[in-house]
Amino acid sequence: MTELIVEDLWASSNGKEVLRGVSLEVSSGQVHAVMGPNGSGKSTLAHVLMGRPGYEVTGGAVFLDGLDITALSPFERAQAGLFLGMQYPIEVPGVSLEAMLTASFEASGRDVKELPSTLLHEAISVGLDVALLKRSLNDDFSGGERKRSEAIQIGMLQPKVAVLDEVDSGLDVDALRVISRRLEAATQPSDKSEGLAVLAITHYTKLFAELEPDRVYVLMKGKIAAFGGKELAHQIEAHGFDPWEVPEEVEVGIRLD
């Protein structure tokens, strides 16, 4: 059983505190959702979990299978089994999906012999034009193509935990369905794995029509304000995040001129 445990995580970006004590966990085969309005710290959470440069962890820790990954490089986190599906997957000119996956396989000592055929199979299963496999990563890809490419990478890299940042943004209904099915299949236990753990970070409930969450966390101003079952997602769909709004903090100070 794999577990991602986030323990009282504090983080800042550009000197501004964005996460202020986030605690949550997700384990193999489970789909957990983190929902929150704009500016609640959702994307920061996703990036801090993967160790993106530009964010500073100021407190707390992240454990993957008991291993403290808080100070590891993104590459080491990925090799430990963590995946980040990005809201805006980055263009890498001149580097194809196939070349990137080959380098990743080689770094983890996996056999690359079957890679091209497996990759073709994955591309077909999520409906990505196979010509894109050899083109520059995400370069001139549509929003849907980028997300399909991210889903393919989950299928290929077989991470233990996938953090998905706004996976449903920029997707039409068909693409969302295809990607959700692929994710759902990955969460199923097999003889090789106990099933992918998914932490889906999102603003909207669109995804959950296709991929049902086992647990929903509400992130407000960098803190988990509530958590519950999937009914919480329905409540958010109906009423938004207002019930958890806290009044603006007012800074009180004395100016000494």
Binding site: F75, I90, V92, P93, M100, A103, S104
Partner: peptide, 23 residues
């Protein structure tokens, strides 16, 4: 670009080589 490749399990030096080669 480096971060993207690293987050896919590509070691930093290999990621840089891929990007330069891609350039």
């Amino acid at each position: 670009q480096l971060f993207y490749l690293q987050s896919r399990g590509v070691p930093t030096d290999v990621a840089e080589r891929l990007i330069v080669d891609g350039f």
